[in-house]
Design a protein around this nucleic acid. Structure first.
Lengths: 230, 230
DNA sequence: TCAAAAGTGTTTGTGGTACACCCATGG
DNA sequence: CCATGGGTGTACCACAAACACTTTTGA
């Protein structure tokens, strides 16, 4: 039957903050089709692994970061299913559908991609380099989802090291959203939300030392949307 | 290779408001596995059709309703990709992943399911009957998404006939959300949102005649979420 | 003592929520 | 004239947004 021909892959859009910029981990294609263009890391789903396992495996293969689970059920680093892309013709070699995931990895934990086994490199999301298949569309979709989630949940912390200053957190939000935020309002809101707590440590450097904070794992990190109807 | 064994299906969770109740269209399984239990309508993705086309085909086969596209890019009736389920073992016959969609169909347009070719029936979402495979989980996930979308977008209109009274609209929202809403606040908010307009017609019946409204297709039917950070 | 970054409050406006009565029609 | 459902306004409170100066340190 015709449906048996379909190949199933998992692709993972991996974001990190590097050099004060939102970057995505891409691999350069060595063979046709699209030789020399950039692609999202991915691979075939094996017969005995779940989609989530396949996505976690891809993430580990490219970054060296293993996926763990917290008591809350959330994963570290953050990974979630994004969308499934399956247009006929999206791969010239045959019918391939891909379940796309997106992942957020904390900057300092990132194993330097491209150093040895992997040929992956971090690339800024804008401008995005020329990409293979429909992968530009997938990255754009992931970016849209990231910005959206940033507004009503606390995923932003997943891109920061375990302890961070409020200024670093604000810079992270400004980098991803592409807009500047008011310092006083930002600090008031995030402290009110009770999603972070002081560590008691300070970070020194240029200027006045800054309090270091950590994310509270037990925090209820969702905000109610303003409902269209009461 | 092991990845060639994977079969790909599309399942569609079809919601409608019937008998003042939120109902879902299910088919009774005639053969093992799970013979006699209820399942979401679905089928294999054909080699030459997109996932959206496959979902639209399933919807049409079960309800007789064709999927069209508006100038805005939105579809009528409403259909969107929900999630992809692919755990090994979710189908005892082999590795099958399913891309689940959910659809909202307007009550009066519904072709009576179960009347001829189809063996589908409308079932209330609560209590949900005993279901085959992981389909109970899929319906629960679709319901969660529907409730969530209802709060910040205008998908609710997709479940109503082309013209409707404000009371009918409010009943629809109350049915889906499972809570009662204040009439004055509901009316003020929905009129302020400018997503509906008067038709000039009235519906008569018991009690005072009610103004009939229609949905404004050009309406911006999304509400900004209250952002966690300013 | 200067540069650089951290930290801190108040005011004003908008929108959410709670709440009770009169109106128009058909029987 | 009465039962049934349709339709209307206001007062209070909480939160979002705009806005500028002082503090602490290292060089």
């Amino acid at each position: 039957m015709s449906h048996e021909q379909i190949a199933v892959t998992v692709d993972v859009v991996i974001f990190a903050l590097r050099d004060n910029d939102l970057q995505v981990l891409l691999v350069k294609r060595k063979y046709p089709p699209y030789e020399g263009l950039w692609a999202i890391p991915g691979g075939y789903v094996q017969a005995d692994e779940s989609l989530e396992d396949a996505a976690a495996r891809e993430l580990r293969e490219e970054t060296g970061i293993g996926v763990g689970e917290l008591e809350t059920g959330a994963t570290v680093p953050y990974i979630e299913q994004l969308y499934t892309f399956g247009d006929p013709g999206r791969d010239p070699r045959g019918r391939v559908i891909t379940i796309a995931y997106f992942a957020l990895v904390p900057a300092p934990l990132v194993i330097q991609a491209g150093s040895d086994a992997s040929d992956a490199e971090w690339k800024p999301v804008r401008p995005l380099p020329q990409m293979a298949f429909d992968h530009a569309r997938i990255v754009q979709y992931a970016l849209k989802r990231l910005r959206y989630k940033l507004e009503y949940s606390a995923v932003g912390f997943q891109l920061l090291p375990p302890v961070f200053t409020l200024s670093a957190l604000q810079r992270a939000y400004e980098t991803i959203l592409g807009e500047t935020l008011d310092k006083r309002n930002f600090r008031r809101r995030i402290l009110q939300a009770q999603v972070i707590e002081q560590t008691g440590q300070y970070q020194t450097g240029e200027g006045r030392p800054a309090m270091l904070y950590r994310f509270r794992e037990d925090a209820v990190a969702e905000v109610k949307a303003r409902r269209l109807f009461p």
